[in-house]
Design a binder for these strands. Structure first.
Lengths: 349, 349
DNA sequence: TTGAAAGCGATACCAA
DNA sequence: TTGGTATCGCTTTCAA
């Protein structure tokens, strides 16, 4: 035994199987830096040399180590995303649009969910920051002081999604939840409903829901002759659909003349419709139901849910564009992008 | 002006605002390596020193650079996930469970979606690998030769999700799609339906659907007196629900005695139910409909969809456990974990 | 057009 | 219990 190791120029001590740039360099008979150039600025290398290097890259199956490169370039090619939740598919399309557009520019998405908790968000943030992301997107606009301090020190572009905070940390892509609440409520009144109530999930879970309910309240206060009727599901109710069912019950008990409910999401609305059917109430004749989100199924399955449509994918795509510009040091024209929303009238209200 | 920079020991040349380990060391009057120890093996440092270092860490708001550390430890603390799609919320809970459990162990999730395309998967894989993930999970089991070669060279633990491939790359967490197709079909025949058809999305999009349809076909061949009836949505139809609607139409045209359709997903089933209602067919009396997935809404909204439930979150959680074990060099007892499935009988079939 | 040397921020290994 | 030194894989800077 004791076969002498072939003196592959000090390459002998590597214990991983990753091919390094040095390996490529040796095979192509050039220096490391030339390999680097071929990969990042091919025009700076003579065609002949370049071909030799590319051949070596192929032969060896070389995959560059971005993390190592990041050490000198100070750019990890990673964008971190803090998403409130992946369930209910609210943000799924946003994440999709985001990752798609980022990847097209060579960036990867580091994803984490916060379950709507600012404390968890802060904690997760500090973990994500250890990877030195070049940028950050988040779907919440309510942050702890710790989180804000971390973000400040990180000095990376931050984009807040799905709202347009009055005082954004940095920039934002979203729409006015307050405006959307107003629009739908106005639409319902225009349709002739007299006593709309608002049904939301457990209290304070989400600032966006609050904004929508405020939009509702604003319109009711202005145009209707009764105080706003806002129902919040009890803490015990966890599922959104269950919350919608119980919300409807509560609304009808408390205000028997309720003729219409505006739900904080389509899932909640489905719960309400389900409960209405259970009670043999006709929708919308006996009780009208409006949702929020325009999820896949809202328009189908005989549901015909009147709702508000948000361009989730577009939010992700625009956020990617914005953050890419910022990461490349450009100063984008707009720090806030309003993608709007749309009231979608269907049969349920 | 021209205030002389305080000679913070060569720290003067840094152009980022990140606090480095060296900065902490200086402030705590120790060497870098001691700071490193305090952070990773506190018991090896005298309590007094440790306190001084921790104070410095806090004061400076130091956040370690894992990417730099990865260079020597050869562990990036990153796990990459290749997900077929985030839409339809099929995999959302899996991603959630995965990222939650990984994070608890200090790992982050690098996420990308492949849109069910093996070619795209291979391409994305090579990009993800540049970040040197410590492990990889993927929801597809159909890979290109390039992808397999990359995976092989990467030499990291790989977990395939949502199926139990006969020949896994490495390990897997899922269940038998074939078995699930068989189980639901058997259930439908037991319920007394005589002529069940299978409705899937556009051809070949997903190996799992194929397995389910094969399970269906196996049972029909064995127990029924007619050849399997399998409908595939035309390429033109993109939405799953639309596919369900058109699938129902096709089935009834081609085989008017069809009394039951087993759909490849709940979304498809909703489309079918929707179409049935449009045609004034009663569900399940005139036509029964079964789905697959047990999405949030399946049990609600008067839908009462009979379906197959998959423990999506559990798949993610178990996958995290498995990959964590493998990354720590343990050899887990099981390379494949079967989380099973469950036929959920409701009113639609 | 190409290369040599010096880091980037952290950890491993061996000393003190 | 603590520290010095040599890397990790890559890019930058400066020369040739």
């Amino acid at each position: 035994m004791a076969t002498p190791l072939s003196p592959t120029t000090k390459g002998a001590k590597a214990r991983t199987n990753w091919v390094t740039m040095e390996d490529v360099a040796i095979r192509a008979q050039v220096s490391k830096i030339t390999v680097s150039r071929v990969l990042r600025a091919p025009e700076k290398v003579r065609a002949e040399t370049r071909e030799r290097v590319l051949a070596a890259v192929r032969d060896l199956g070389y995959v560059p180590d971005d993390a190592a490169g990041a050490l000198t370039t100070r750019s990890s090619k990673i964008v971190a995303a803090l998403i409130s939740t992946l369930e209910g598919s609210t943000f799924a399309s946003t994440v999709d649009g985001l990752s798609r557009n980022l990847r097209a520019a060579g960036y990867q998405l580091l994803l984490a969910t916060t379950d709507y908790s600012p404390e968890r968000e802060a904690e997760i943030l500090s973990m994500l920051l250890r990877q030195r992301p070049d940028g950050l997107v988040m779907t919440s606009s309510h942050h702890t002081a710790d989180a804000l301090a971390l973000l400040k020190r990180a000095q990376i572009p931050v984009v807040e999604l799905w709202e347009l905070p009055p005082k954004p940390i940095d920039s934002s892509v979203g729409f006015s939840n307050f405006g959307a609440g107003k629009a739908m409520t106005g639409f319902l009144l225009d349709r002739g409903y007299r006593r709309p109530a608002f049904i939301g999930p457990r209290a304070g879970i989400d600032g966006r829901v609050k904004s929508r309910s405020e939009g509702y309240a604003a319109v009711v206060s202005e145009r209707a002759a009764f105080p706003p009727r806002i129902i919040t599901a009890p803490e015990a109710v966890t599922s959104l659909t269950d919350g919608g069912a119980s919300g409807l019950v509560t609304a009808l008990e408390r205000w028997p003349d309720t003729d219409c409910v505006f739900c904080s999401s389509d899932s909640v609305a489905l719960g309400a419709i389900s409960e209405a059917r259970r009670r043999n109430l006709r929708v919308p004749e006996d009780i009208a139901v409006a949702g929020y989100g325009d999820f896949d199924l809202a328009g189908n399955s005989g549901l015909e849910l009147t709702t508000v449509r948000i361009a989730g994918t577009e939010i992700g795509e625009r956020a990617a564009e914005l953050i890419l510009q910022r990461m490349q040091g450009e100063r984008p024209q707009h720090k806030s992008i309003d993608v709007g929303f749309e009231v979608v009238p269907r049969a349920s209200a």
